[in-house]
């Protein structure tokens, strides 16, 4: 029973969501909107589990004074401070402590993490773009042409490069994306079907 009921819920949930797509009637629209809302709400609840897990993970470290426990303490402090600021000091208004911490602490770190990509994209390009084989050469040439073709200096160096780079993006690039997209579509469809039909049930724990 403990297995059958979840499998039944999955089946019904999946089939209802597929059928509603074909029914424009209002009832079907409401089910659709309702399910999306419910998913969001459940997502809100489980954040409690997430925070619980995070807190246990770090308090354990602090308690046992494991290596790096000081940093765990910093994480816990950050969490508690931010939560208190948000829940008791004026909520999410832009001039209140919660949003101030968000603007001056969370945002800059976020933007900087994002900007690390500029460095990593360079080091990845340097290491990976070697003409080791025919395929690697294709990768390398396409990357260089587009990279140069996208900036004004590219046209100064060799003006046709802009045209070639646009052509690469519009044709071979788009074509391959389409093939991958179709493959992904089919793979995802069959996996979704296996889930709905209960053929794929490893997410319930165990393969048997």
């Amino acid at each position: 029973m403990r297995r059958q009921i979840p499998l039944a819920i999955t089946f019904i949930g999946g089939v209802v969501m597929i059928i509603q797509y074909f029914i424009p009637h209002q009832i079907s629209q409401e089910i659709y909107r309702g399910v999306l809302d419910w998913q969001m709400i459940v997502g809100g609840f489980v954040l409690v589990l997430g925070i619980g897990s995070l807190v246990t993970h770090h308090t354990e470290k602090v308690k046992r004074q494991k290596e790096g426990w000081g940093y765990s303490l910093v994480a816990l402090l950050g969490l508690v401070m931010m939560a208190i600021a948000g829940l008791f000091f004026g909520g999410m208004a832009s001039d209140k402590p919660f949003m101030q911490i968000f603007i001056y602490a969370q945002n800059p770190i976020q933007a900087t993490m994002f900007s690390l990509l500029a460095f990593f994209i360079a080091s990845a390009a340097y290491r990976a773009f070697r003409a080791r084989s025919f395929i690697a050469t294709l990768l390398l040439l396409a990357a260089i042409i587009v990279m140069i073709g996208r900036v004004p200096i590219g046209a100064k160096i060799w003006s046709p490069i802009r045209v070639i780079s646009n052509w690469l993006l519009d044709y071979p690039n788009m074509v391959a994306k389409r093939a991958i997209g179709l493959g992904v579509g089919l793979g995802m469809l069959s996996t979704a079907l296996k889930i709905i039909l209960g053929i794929e049930r490893s997410y319930l724990g165990g393969g048997k």
Binding site: A124, R127, F129, I180, G181, G183, V184, L186, G187, M188
Partner: peptide
């Protein structure tokens, strides 16, 4: 299956399952 991220995995990982290969892998 994120087509936009595949180029980056290809350049930085030893093995990359492209799109449908990932679904077939399980």
């Amino acid at each position: 299956d994120a087509v936009t991220q595949l180029p980056f995995f290809i350049t930085s990982c030893d093995y990359t399952l492209i799109g449908e290969e990932f679904y077939a892998a399980s």
